[in-house]
């Protein structure tokens, strides 16, 4: 068990290191001169040569490549990703300040997505009425195809401006989170529904389901006692990427609803070409992916007895 966890931790550390390295190469080495990009900032025309020189020595960009990389990596290990160009505070601090807001939003969105998605999948697969199956089955492809920002704007139009049920913008109170969370949840729910219903359909065709039916089991026992559990497993493995995508969804959702959060921070950072902040966000995304995957890996053996930790299965 310990070895299993250790192995997974090691893998996670590798992904984080690789994500940091990839982002370092993209952000600092690819442009040739990151400093002039940063200094040029928001379409400012004149680049202040003094500022460039100051930044250059501050980032150590006048040294050889490998040295730059190792210095940066060493700092990153101490959670130092550099100073934000925009407001002069540490990049990690500007991210940490707004992170709780996004976590709230993402958690609400995720809960909503799991609820909606699995309800839709089970209803669409288990219903005996072919019309209901057809109608519900056409929803997930639709949910996947609509742009997230459009969903947000339509919700805003309908619920905030027409019906005046929820505030249009801001972070104040529980009501302000409903529409952004729904915006975030709809595409994710569609993906969950699509994956789960596909997996359910496949599971229902398995010989062991026929065998349960041959024992005289009711449809309810077949569906909820056997099929759903088996079908949920492939969906569970996608959790890591699903959660990562919530982060991407937050970029759009927070922009539409003008909420503070790391999504909005991403947009402003890209806009002002604030490389230290962008890199922090990329690495944060990798951290979230790694942590979720680790949690899934640890839950997995509890759900699926075939995954055996530590001991070998008897043939």
């Amino acid at each position: 068990m310990l070895r299993y966890v250790g192995q997974r931790l090691l893998q996670g550390a590798f992904v984080l290191w690789a994500a940091y390295t990839v982002s370092f190469f993209i952000l600092y080495l690819l442009p040739g001169d990151a400093v002039s990009i940063m200094a040029s900032g928001d379409e400012q025309n004149a680049v202040d040569p003094a500022l460039v020189a100051k930044l250059r020595s501050e980032y150590g960009l006048d040294r050889p490549l490998y040295e730059q990389y190792f210095i940066a990596l060493g700092r990153a290990l101490q959670l130092d990703f550099g100073i934000s160009i925009k407001n002069g505070v540490a990049a990690t601090r500007s991210v940490a300040e707004v992170l709780p807001e996004t976590i709230k939003l993402a958690a609400a969105g995720f809960a909503l997505a799991v609820l909606l998605g699995s309800a839709l999948a089970t209803a669409a697969t288990f219903s005996r009425n072919p019309w209901v199956r057809q109608a519900l089955g056409s929803l997930p492809p639709l949910g996947i195809a609509v742009p997230t920002f459009w969903i947000g704007l339509l919700l805003l139009q309908l619920f905030s401006f027409r019906l005046r049920l929820f505030p249009a913008i801001g972070n104040d109170g529980a009501a302000s989170i409903v529409l952004p969370a729904l915006t975030l949840a709809i595409p994710t729910a569609a993906v969950i529904a699509q994956l789960l219903s596909r997996s359910l359909r496949q599971t229902l065709g398995e010989p062991y389901i026929e065998q349960v039916r041959a024992k005289g089991a009711s449809e309810a026992l077949i569906n909820f006692g056997h099929a759903l559990r088996n079908a949920a497993i492939p969906t569970l493995t996608m959790l890591g990427i699903l959660v990562g995508n919530l982060l991407a969804g937050a970029v759009v959702s927070e922009t539409v609803f003008s909420r503070a959060g790391i999504g909005r921070l991403t947009v402003t950072a890209v806009n002002s070409r604030d490389i230290p902040v962008v890199q922090t966000l990329v690495v944060l995304a990798a951290v979230i992916f790694v942590v979720t995957s680790l949690v899934v890996d640890l839950i997995y053996p509890l759900v699926d007895p075939r995954i055996n930790i530590g001991k070998t299965a008897k043939a």
């Binding site: 398995e206 010989p207 062991y208 026929e210 065998q211 349960v212 039916r213 041959a214 024992k215 005289g216 089991a217 009711s218 056997h226 559990r229 088996n230 759900v303 699926d304 007895p305 075939r306």
Partner: peptide, 22 residues
């Protein structure tokens, strides 16, 4: 549901796939 299993049993073709793995 009252006939299957109770009056008529079925032994399947492929034992490896015919038991619920969970």
């Amino acid at each position: 549901q009252n006939v299957r299993g109770k009056d008529i049993g079925l032994i399947p073709q492929d034992p490896t796939a015919s038991l619920d793995p969970l």
